[in-house]
Amino acid sequence: MTTLALPARDSVTMLRRSLRRMLRYPSLTLMLLGQPILFLLLFVYVFGGTLGAGLGPSGGRADYLAFVVPGILTITVASVALGTAVSVAMDATEGIMARFRTMAISRASVLTGHVLGTLIQTAVGLVVVLAVAVAAGFRPSADVGGWLAAAGLVVLFTVALTWLSVALGLVSKSVETASNLPMVLTLLPFLGSGFVPTDSMPAWLRVFADYQPFTPVIDTLRALLLGTPVDGGSAALAVGWSAAIALAGYVWAKSLFHRGAAR
C-alpha cells in the first residue's frame, strides 16, 4: 500500500459488501433480532408480574420492564455478534476469504468490513428493540449525558463481542459450529444481573454472576438509562472487561487470519 487512503477505501468497500449481504439475507437479521424481542415480551408479559414482585415491596410489571431492558439490550448485542461469526465462517468456508488474501488489498479491511457492518446492524437492532420496549411501556429517564454514556458503553461492548465473534467465526471449521459457538454469549445475561438481581442467587453462582463481563455492563447501563447513580467500580469493571475482550478478540482474530485458518 503506497498511500494511507487505500486501507480506508478497502474497508469501505468491504463494509458496503457486508451491508449488501445483510439486505440480501434479511431472514438472518430478523432471526437475530427476534430472539431478544421474544425474550423481552416473554419476560415482561409472562414472568414480569411475579418477577417484578421480587424486586421490592412495590414492584410490578412496569418495574420489571425497567429492570430487564438493559439485559435485553446486551442480548441484542450478543445475538447480532453471533450473526457476524456466521458470516465470517461463510467467507472462510466458501473460499472467498482465501481469494481476498491473495489480493493486494489492505489485510485488515477483510475483517474490519465485517466489524463495521455489525456495528451498524447492532445500532439498528438496538433502536428496534428499544422501540419495542418503549411500546411496552419502558420510560427511560436518562439525560443527554446519560444517553451518550450509555451509547458509548454499548458501542465499546459491541466492538468487544464482535471481534470475539470474528475470531470464533474464523476458528470454526463449519458454518454450523460458528452459529453454535457464540450461543453461550446470549445465555450469559441469565447467569448475571440481566433478569434477576444477583443477590437472589446462591452464593457459589453469585461469585460468577457478579464478576462476569455482562453484569457490570448491564448494571452500568441500567443506572445510566434510569438516571440512578452509577457505581464507579461497576462502570470501571464494565469498561475494563469490554476493552480486554475487544483487545483479546482482535489479536486472536488477526492471528487466525494471518495463519490462514480459512483453509
Binding site: 458496503r16 449488501r20 439475507y25 461463510m90 473460499g95 481476498f100
Partner: peptide, 24 residues
C-alpha cells in the same frame, strides 16, 4: 487465483461480485 472451490460471494449477484473485485 482461481481455486478448487469457486470463491464467489453467494449473496451478491454475478455483476456485484465483479464490481466488488473492481473496487478492491
Amino acid at each position: 487465483v482461481t481455486g478448487q472451490f469457486s470463491a464467489v460471494d453467494n449473496l451478491l449477484t454475478g455483476r456485484e461480485n465483479l464490481l466488488l473485485m473492481a473496487d478492491l
